[in-house]
Simulated scan of single mutants.
Amino acid sequence: MPQPDIAFWLVAAFSVVFAGISKGGFGSGAAFAAASILSIVIPPGQALGLMLPLLMLVDLVTLRPYWRGWSWPDARLLILGAVPGVALGAALYRVANDDLLRLLIGVISLTFVAWQLARQQGWLALSRRAVPMWGGALAGVTAGFTSFISHAGGPPAAVWLLSRRLDKTRFQATTVLVFWAINIMKFVPYAFLGIFTQQTFLLDLALAPFALVGAWLGVLAHRRVPERVFFAITYVLLSLTGLKLIYEALV
């Protein structure tokens, strides 16, 4: 990793606070924007490694308020499905270079924005009828894979959970539990693949307070900031970041 400079610290602090706000106040769906933004100033693999312990810290903080509020059968299906997804992500990471990772993260960022806008405009209607169990397993595989390579497993998991007709609190609690488990799964292969280093560990210690502040701000923002405003900002950030990463990967 290059020697951290002022630009790194400014971008990193903003990214980590943003991830904390997203997880603490608006669910985990947009938290992966932090890794996308960080990939602009450091190599994408290092951005993923730097963010994972911080996301796990926020997971730990936000898990308690939703303790046992989840739908265990749905969470179990997604978690079990995520195991081969994480393995596939690890296999791809072993052969991917930085440009391929930038391209994948950029494409996933733009796909996330397109998916969310299509839902809001009514162009994409997610079924709320019963979905076969294999659909949940497939959602888990996809969530594990996209989470491993970009921390962006939210949309595949949401597709399954929305079809299960869960109430808002049970949906959120199940999401928190699923990604707490997936992030733990990712930790071991991240370590074996050398994504964590002594330098990223020291940087995580320095950035941990920003993650906690972000989670605290997220709780406040949940009550005071309209969800539409927060996600509008997220979509702009992800669109600009995704386009830049794709451009850097292809040029």
Rank of each mutant, 00 (worst) to 15 (best):
S109M: 03
S109D: 08
L110P: 11
T111G: 13
F112S: 07
V113L: 13
V113W: 11
A114I: 10
A118Y: 01
G122C: 12
L124Q: 03
L124Y: 13
A125W: 00
S127V: 02
A130P: 01
P132F: 04
W134E: 09
G135R: 00
A137K: 02
L138M: 15
A139M: 03
A139T: 10
G140S: 03
T142A: 14
G144M: 11
T146E: 02
I149C: 11
H151N: 15
H151P: 14
G153S: 04
A157C: 05
V159D: 00
L162W: 05
S163K: 02
S163W: 00
K168N: 09
Q172S: 11
V176W: 08
L177G: 02
N183F: 09
I184P: 00
M185T: 00
V188H: 02
A191T: 05
F192T: 13
F192L: 12
L193M: 13
L193W: 03
G194K: 10
F201K: 00
F201A: 13
L202Y: 06
L205D: 05
A206Y: 04
A206V: 03
L207Y: 03
A208T: 13
P209D: 06
W216H: 06
W216G: 03
W216N: 01
L217Q: 06
G218D: 02
L220K: 14
A221H: 08
R223K: 15
R224W: 14
